[in-house]
């Protein structure tokens, strides 16, 4: 079980500052959704958390600085689902999900590795695709395979960068419900960047709203999602409904014209 503590996290691409001194803590077994407009720093933050990028400040997992962990050690703890787009040459779906076992296994795959790969494939309902070439799949299918790879990695923390972008509404709900169940069942901490506020509100225990590299809100969906905040951050007028079954529903109405100074 793990707790993540982020302290004064700063990141710049050359001279452009992307993240400005972020501080937050994510408790064990929490599903945290990061929301915010394009360019607010969601993807950058996720990459920093997996040490793909090297920010200043501290990222602590159970009090231990991730800088002090070996690359492989970190991969045993953190699984990362990138946005789709990259091709993977001459690899079947099974091969791609098997890659998730890389930090755990040696040259030869053990029985345990094979059964975790199998479970992940079943969990994401891509078993009928197992023998297919990854590159031949649709975007949505590829997205599920990449999630399955991270699940097979059997991490304590799961990072997902807009994991449902290419999925239709049926598969969106299916994938997110699966991730949510996985977190409840195994106690893994999930941090994902999500665009859709309704979806984020529905599956998140906690929401974090980023705007221009700053945290403008952190808390439960109920606290965080307000018309004022959406107006301020997204520059959109929106209506917010509360439905006993669906929870919070955010319906964007129209963009607010930018005031040109």
């Amino acid at each position: 079980m793990v707790t993540i503590t982020v302290d004064s996290l700063d990141f710049s691409y050359q001279s452009t500052r992307i993240l400005h001194g972020l501080n937050f803590t994510v408790g064990e077994g929490t599903v945290l959704c990061i929301v915010g407009p394009n360019g607010s720093g969601k993807t950058t933050l996720i990459r920093c958390l997996d040490r793909i990028l090297h920010p200043s400040g501290a990222i602590l997992i159970n009090g231990k600085h991730i800088r002090d962990l070996g690359r492989r050690e970190l991969a045993e703890i953190i699984g990362y689902v990138p946005q789709i787009g990259a091709k993977i040459a001459a690899a079947t779906v099974f091969d791609v999900v098997m890659m998730g076992r890389t930090p755990h296994m040696g040259w030869q795959s053990r029985k345990e590795d094979l059964s975790l790969v199998e479970e992940a494939i079943q969990l994401l309902k891509v078993d009928h695709l197992a023998d297919r070439e990854f590159n031949e799949l649709s975007g949505g299918q590829q997205q599920k395979v990449l999630i399955a790879r991270a699940v097979a990695q059997d991490p304590r923390i799961l990072l997902l960068d807009e994991p449902t972008n290419s999925l239709d509404i049926h598969h969106q709900l299916e994938a997110l419900a699966m991730i949510h169940r996985l977190s409840r069942k195994t106690g893994i901490t999930v941090i994902m960047a999500v665009h859709d506020l309704t979806i984020a509100a529905r599956y998140a225990d906690q929401l974090m709203m980023l705007h221009n590299g700053l945290i403008v809100g952190y808390g439960s969906p109920e606290e965080l999602i307000t018309q004022e905040r959406i107006r301020e951050v997204y520059r959109v007028d929106a209506k917010i409904f509360r439905d006993p079954e669906a929870g919070l529903i955010v319906t964007p109405l129209h963009p607010i014209a930018d005031v040109i100074p």
Binding site: A75, A86, I88, A91, M99, G106, Q153
Partner: peptide
């Protein structure tokens, strides 16, 4: 041949390979 698995992971891109623990 010892690094075959790591080369496999590289096929998914540098970022993914890094996050899978490959130097």
């Amino acid at each position: 041949i010892f690094f075959a698995r790591s080369i496999n992971a590289l096929a998914a891109g540098d970022e993914t390979a890094t996050s899978l623990g490959v130097a």
